[in-house]
Computed example of a mutant assay.
Amino acid sequence: MRSRVLCGMAAAAALLVTGCGSDAGTGGDGGAKPGSASPATAGAFPVAVTDCAGAETTFAAAPKKIVTSNAASLEMLLALGAGDRVIGTGFPPGKGGMPAELADRAAKVPVLGQTVIAKEKLLGSGADLYVDTFADMGSMGGAMGAAPTEQEYAAAGIKHVYLHSTACAAQLKGPQQDLAEVEADIRRLGRITDTTARAEELVAGMEQKTGAVRTAVAGVAPDQRPSYFFFDFDAGTKQPIAVCGRQVANAVITLAGARNVFADCDGDFKPVSWEDVVAKNPDWIQLGVRNKGSEAETAKAFEAAAQFLRDFPATKGLTAVQQGRFVRIGSEQTTIAGVRNADSVRQIARTVHPDLVKDGQ
């Protein structure tokens, strides 16, 4: 299924992500809601986490051999300082897809699958933990075959957890309007890998950035905030894919002081029509382009996306296109859960609220 291929790639914007995943791990009431993690302090085991359905996974000690489903969960583990325990990944990061400070370490992680890791290879990897960024990746079918069952994971000695912010998105009761779920994922992985202090440091940095933006745009009434459309150029131009309210990007856009024009669509991503986009007539359009490995090539891709909108009959008359209101920020740090979501919040806010959010904030 093409949409799951895209969402599984760290270098791609996710499309139709569905399914049930991991815990939220906020460190509060461990049984307060599906996806919560039992309270734990650094080095405190056992650590118990639950998935969207409430099924619990308990860790008696930190895992020593980890496999990640794609570069998104890999990036989180590298940022936490647990990268030396990652023995393999699927959907490896593309050139330029990782932050510069993590790129060398990411390149050393063995690639177990260019897309979904084959069932036999995953079960025979020797891992004691498999981190899924998205649920049901095995449904891509075809030559990739079926995903392992939970019983098969258990028989192989592999604990299986998910990122709540992405895998459980379809089960959220409302839209993601802040990065609480992403931060909870970071904290949860910190508890599991015994890197709690680093997790708190990462979350604190994110909250400092987003908090400054929240304060700066607080005086702008919700109905006065600029409307915003994330245009996933790399997903194709025949039919646009809307970022819905339950997707991480909706939280990024909302925190930046803008209004996602498709926030009310059900789910996290949804195919729409160009007529739908025209009817919304957004004030700003983010050019959803993946990092191409160099500033020059990425800049070319951004310009290609902008030129398409200028030339395409359905969009060339849009206010944002006519006035050149394009936001050039990479897809990865907007639609894929991670520490860099906070950077996107700040970058978008500086663009759409230049009088309120200045460089250095």
Rank of each mutant, 00 (worst) to 15 (best):
S331L: 10
C265E: 08
P226G: 07
G97H: 09
A14T: 08
L255I: 08
A212R: 10
G141Q: 13
G219I: 07
K270F: 11
K300L: 05
T315S: 15
G211C: 10
T57N: 02
R310D: 04
A55Q: 03
A320R: 13
D232S: 09
R4H: 07
A167N: 02
G28F: 04
A14P: 14
A143F: 13
V345T: 05
G88T: 03
S273W: 11
I336M: 14
P313I: 09
L80F: 12
E120W: 01
V67F: 05
D268Y: 11
F59P: 00
K238N: 11
S294F: 06
G288Q: 10
M144F: 13
A263E: 14
R191G: 00
M76G: 02
D268H: 12
A249H: 08
G138L: 12
M137E: 14
V220F: 11
L309I: 07
E201Y: 02
S125E: 13
G219Y: 09
W274E: 11
D194S: 03
G219A: 12
A107P: 08
Q176T: 12
A180P: 02
L77H: 08
K316D: 07
V345Y: 00
A11G: 15
T319P: 06
A106M: 08
Q224L: 05
L15G: 01
L74V: 07
F134L: 14
T57C: 02
E183Y: 06
G211T: 06
T215P: 00
D178Q: 11
G236A: 13
I192N: 02
E207D: 15
L74I: 10
V111M: 03
A147R: 06
H353Q: 06
F230I: 11
R310C: 00
I87S: 07
E150H: 05
E181Q: 07
D283V: 00
F230T: 11
D264K: 15
A107G: 05
A306R: 14
V182L: 00
I336N: 15
A299Q: 12
P46M: 06
G35D: 05
R246W: 12
A169P: 02
L122Y: 12
D29F: 07
A342F: 13
F45A: 01
G94D: 13
T335C: 11
A146N: 12
V203D: 09
F45Q: 01
G27W: 04
A82V: 12
S36E: 12
V321P: 08
T58Q: 02
A256L: 14
D132Y: 12
A305S: 15
A62S: 06
V109P: 05
G205I: 02
V220Y: 12
S38I: 01
A154M: 05
G317L: 13
A106S: 10
D223K: 15
F45H: 02
A306D: 11
T149L: 10
G8Y: 00
T166H: 02
A342R: 11
T351D: 06
G360M: 03
A204E: 12
F231M: 10
E181H: 05
T115D: 14
G113W: 08
A14Y: 12
T335S: 15
C20G: 01
I158H: 05
T210L: 06
A107H: 11
D128A: 11
R328C: 02
K119G: 10
K316L: 10
D268T: 14
R325T: 12
R325Q: 15
Q347Y: 00
D268R: 06
G205N: 09
A251G: 15
D223L: 13
G138A: 14
R246L: 09
V5L: 09
A72G: 04
R4S: 09
K119R: 15
